[in-house]
């Protein structure tokens, strides 16, 4: 049998990617492509699961029955997204438990935005509106990602994210039209979440170390800065519509480019939070570790019981 060289395999792979043919789990793929996807998808999964915590913080205190039900449904969706994504990671040969251990050890990252606290109810609005809004900008192009299982998971995830974004904006709208106290609560949440939301798109293009290769492999379709700009352009008019002020004195509309210009992002803060020094990094990871440790006896019991059942069946 004729040996196919690595270069040939890589060329064929790239040709498939270039002609928009999806890569499936059993197809040959470069090791680096596999590693990149494992890193990206598992970090995406971790973000969904850690992301349950800042919102879970308000389920027990939601102000009325409808809001409580909606928030429960939303956080449940996030757990579901985590589950699809961990399954997508497994199609690449990675082990779900290992990726979770990497999260707990600090080796694997997750979206930094979840390291900011949610002290008020308005934060549920700000997270839905801004954080899920930014997530949609990032994830809609992922529906066309070259890796099939990830792309298909994203189609469903995006549908649900779009509901999350709308419920967040609705919370903000109600607050902004409410009493002065409520309006102040909404503005305060926007003030705290605006900049971290812009940071969600990652470093500027010239600082982003994985971007170029990911674009070539069609894992990524748009650059960080392009997505960030798109987010600003969409979100600024929404804030105006409900009478809230974007906390950026440099923000202005550029007639010529048809885009908003905005101020400098505090990248020192971004990297500090990525490195584990954000306001809630410690609490978030501790909550996840505690859940794993406290649940150990439950998982052991489930395995032991399954083994007993199997043994009884064959006996």
């Amino acid at each position: 049998m004729k040996e196919i060289s690595l270069v040939d395999l890589e060329n064929r792979f790239q040709k498939k990617v270039d002609s928009e043919i999806r890569i499936e789990p059993n197809d040959w793929m470069p090791e680096e492509y596999r590693r990149t996807l494992i890193r990206q998808i598992s970090q995406h999964a971790h973000s969904e699961v850690v992301g349950m915590l800042p919102e879970g913080n308000w389920i027990t205190r939601a102000p009325n029955l409808r809001r409580k039900a909606v928030l429960l449904a939303k956080v449940q969706d996030e757990a579901g997204h985590g589950l699809y994504l961990y399954s997508a990671v497994e199609t690449l040969g990675a082990d779900r438990e290992q990726t979770i251990d990497d999260l707990h050890s600090g080796k694997a990252k997750y979206s930094s935005i979840f390291n900011y606290p949610t002290p008020t109810w308005a934060d549920m609005g700000a997270i839905g509106w801004l954080v899920d809004g930014a997530a949609i900008m990032n994830q809609v192009p992922l529906c066309r990602c070259s890796y099939g299982p990830y792309a298909r998971a994203m189609v469903r995830v995006c549908k649900e994210e779009s509901f999350h974004q709308r419920q967040g904006f609705e919370i903000m709208t109600v607050l902004a039209q409410g009493t002065p106290e409520q309006k102040a609560m909404a503005q305060d949440a926007l003030d705290r979440f605006w900049w971290p939301a812009l940071m969600m798109f990652g470093p500027n293009d010239d600082e982003s170390k994985h971007s170029k290769q990911s674009m070539k492999w069609k894992i990524k379709r748009f650059s960080n800065d392009d997505l960030r700009q798109q987010f600003v352009d969409v979100t600024v008019p929404q804030a105006k519509l409900i009478g809230l002020t974007i906390p950026d004195p440099d923000l202005k509309w550029n007639e010529k480019t048809g885009h908003y210009e905005f101020g400098e992002i505090n990248w020192d803060e971004f990297w500090q939070v990525v490195e584990g020094n954000g306001p809630c990094n410690f609490d978030r990871i501790k909550a996840r570790k505690d859940a794993k440790e406290k649940g150990m006896w439950v998982r052991k019991a489930a395995s032991a019981h399954a083994a007993k059942r199997a043994a009884r069946k064959t006996a």
Partner: peptide
């Protein structure tokens, strides 16, 4: 609802929340 995000396994977080 107090348990949301703290279940012994992700599948159980989904079940309890549901």
């Amino acid at each position: 609802s107090e348990l949301c995000g703290h279940g012994p396994i992700l599948e159980e977080d989904i079940a309890t929340t549901n």
